[in-house]
């Protein structure tokens, strides 16, 4: 963990204004913001730990818990909402066996909702990592994921 951090920090000057870019890079590397890393970068920038924490919790992008390998973002933009995004969310929750904001026990999937991915013409849509899938129906959305039984099985193994 320290190795990674020593790769990230030297490219920044220890300035307050670099807090958000550093947090973004840390998250890109680890997938979330580990506590030890947060402490260390607060010292590096020279701000109290609580301030680094307050910034990290303010923005929707930052996560304090590890994420799944695949991040599933259900778009809840206006166009998606009126074309049935709540049903898509429901179907995805069912097939993955987790609720909005949760991660499967095998750290495979994280389910989240986002305000808008900007593919309104393809509503309703969802994004898995960087790939956008549009014009969904609850059935089509479920097909994007392995059947719930196999997923559950993996959880039991864990």
């Amino acid at each position: 963990m320290e190795d990674h951090l020593s790769e990230i920090l030297p490219s920044y000057r220890g300035k307050r204004s670099k807090l958000i870019p550093i947090l973004q890079e840390v998250q890109a590397k680890f997938g979330y913001l580990p506590e030890e890393v947060m402490r260390e970068l607060a010292t590096f920038i020279g701000i109290p730990e609580c301030e680094a924490y307050s910034v990290a919790t303010f923005y929707a992008q930052f996560r304090l818990m590890p994420l799944g390998k695949k991040r599933v973002a259900i778009c809840r933009g206006t166009a998606c909402h009126i074309s049935g995004a709540p049903k898509i969310l429901e179907a995805t929750e069912k097939v993955l066996g987790i609720k909005d904001g949760e991660t499967t026990a095998d750290l495979e999937y994280t389910l989240e909702t986002v305000a808008c991915i900007g593919c309104c013409a393809l509503a309703p849509c969802l994004r898995i990592n960087e790939d956008v899938h549009g014009r969904l129906t609850p059935a089509k959305a479920s097909e994007l994921f392995p059947a719930p039984s196999t997923n559950k099985g993996e959880q039991d193994v864990q």
Partner: peptide, 21 residues
């Protein structure tokens, strides 16, 4: 980093400064 309120000018400026927007 994803906060709707940062579209407001003073909040956006604070966000670039590395603070809560």
């Amino acid at each position: 980093a994803g906060a709707f309120v940062c579209g407001e000018s003073t909040a956006l400026v604070l966000s670039i400064e590395g603070k809560r927007g």
